[in-house]
Design a protein around this nucleic acid. Sequence first.
DNA 1: TTGTACGCGTTATCAC
DNA 2: GTGATAACGCGTACAA
Lengths: 337, 337
Amino acid sequence: MAATIHDVAQLAGVAISTVSKVMNDSPRISEQTRARVREAMRQLDYHPSRHARGLARNRSDSIGVLMGLGRHHAFHNPYRFEILSGIEQSCTQQQHSVTLLNTQWLAQDRKAVSQLVAERKVDAVILHADEQAPFFIRQFTQLKLPFVVIGRGAPGEGHSWVDMDNRHAGLLATRHLLAQGYRRLQFIGNHPADGISLQREQGFTQALAEAGLAPQTPALFAQAGEVAEGAALWQQIVQQPQRPDALLVAGNPLAAGLLAAARSQGIAIGPELGLVSFDNYPYAQLTDPPLSVLDIDLFALGQRAAHEVFLQLANPGHRSQIMLLDMALQARASSRR
Amino acid sequence: MAATIHDVAQLAGVAISTVSKVMNDSPRISEQTRARVREAMRQLDYHPSRHARGLARNRSDSIGVLMGLGRHHAFHNPYRFEILSGIEQSCTQQQHSVTLLNTQWLAQDRKAVSQLVAERKVDAVILHADEQAPFFIRQFTQLKLPFVVIGRGAPGEGHSWVDMDNRHAGLLATRHLLAQGYRRLQFIGNHPADGISLQREQGFTQALAEAGLAPQTPALFAQAGEVAEGAALWQQIVQQPQRPDALLVAGNPLAAGLLAAARSQGIAIGPELGLVSFDNYPYAQLTDPPLSVLDIDLFALGQRAAHEVFLQLANPGHRSQIMLLDMALQARASSRR
DNA sequence: TTGTACGCGTTATCAC
DNA sequence: GTGATAACGCGTACAA
């Protein structure tokens, strides 16, 4: 049987309220009794019960992480889990635990979210934004559940969010291509409605404008941003009136697919077609030639998201909207003429 | 304020104990009152408090998942998160929540595991085995915390585990290479002490024996199984007295690195050097030529692990050791002569 | 500075 | 079938 606060009090020869105060660092406890209580806790290997504590304080000391978790996700979207790892680190540092929540289930069952709150299962949630983000944001707001969104959800709606500065990243990547001497640039996005792709495209357009250029051809978009789409997309690209001499691609998988397709048609990647893409998957340095990428620190993004949650918990009503810029251009052969 | 069992009882005009019985499907409750209580619950949008329930029943309805979660893990080891996704699905189906635990912290702090138990933070844990597995297994056993290990930890120690049948997978892959006509086969592992690699090698050796052959050259091992190690490893391979005509590689990243290294030296992958590897990362079909792989259903592995945990929870003392074989050979050009 | 007593929301054991 | 009531372990006024 595990020791309770009662046992500790008895062994230390004090009242349970005193033990409680020692645990919660209440100021007016003499050093002497404090030490006695600590010693008793140690002797009994005492750990306060989460449930009792949660019941009394009405919180769980647990943060929910809400993201899409389905078959194959880990292979196609490893970045989500890099964010998750960052969240876990911060939460553990703050003595909170992480409860994994799947958007798949919570979106199906309309009562699931209110249940989350009513049960006090989590004190707050971190939402990895996807198409269903607005739905969840509405629910959380209405239920007054503290939350922060990863990714710019619906800007200006007054909730906290953190995100990479994708526009700025697009700017940096494009400047790099221009500096290498490429001039007929085209942007390739993962999905027509993918906010991240669109933000990156904004930076792309801005960098071109700075250089007194305009996009040679309008941006093209895939459907899911996967490797396999590269071939079809490359067909679209070559059918355009004017072939671009460089592509800025919104994600590694798509870029790798495009690279393979172009290469198989005898295009010299680098000299004839510059290629830069976002993210830095292990295999980006493995393509032939290796891909130039914008390496984005998603672990840090997760940490920052957790940080925001704790700010909100400590200071109810707190809001902030943070753009993170922890990224580095890794120039490799695919953008060398 | 959220409704409590008290409010429900009042609205339904019954005692709280009756409400409790309705919730727990106690048999001797009349259909009539059962319906009245249900209706009251609906009207009040009632959800029982996790904490109160946990306190009374002394469990948390939460399963801990213990794995290594560090920076870059998601990119280099996506398979862990595929397992995690499978676990989440099964746990949610069983009305349990998933708490994420990081071996990094739990291994540092010796008290952390006993705390997990004392706090009743989780009812059981699923351990993704790595080097520290024996340490955790000892602790769990001693503390009588139900657990199942993913990966054969210490065989025969009497705890539950589930794993892919890596030996059999190695057998299948090797038979495929032999059927294609390759004869001078060599096995390449991720790490000299990596159990998974070693099991796969056993199958490899067995298949050769079946064919009346012996490995031409002893197996070689990388340090971490990463893409970047391919080049150095390829140097080792060519320096051997006799060059193999086919490689069975324990993991996709390493295989991709080897493929690139061999190709850059003008070796025709397929005709001159057969290549089969394990796992089926999205980019495996992207290498030139595409990699033949053994596709392993890790999502199912996670589901099965969770299944075992629930068996153990329902039937204390239950033990089982399961080998899963949900895998399919995807023959591609890298193993076509 | 320390101790007493009650509340938190549920389950389980009785008695009716 | 249903209801009263004692746990479960901790926080916290309030009293001393």
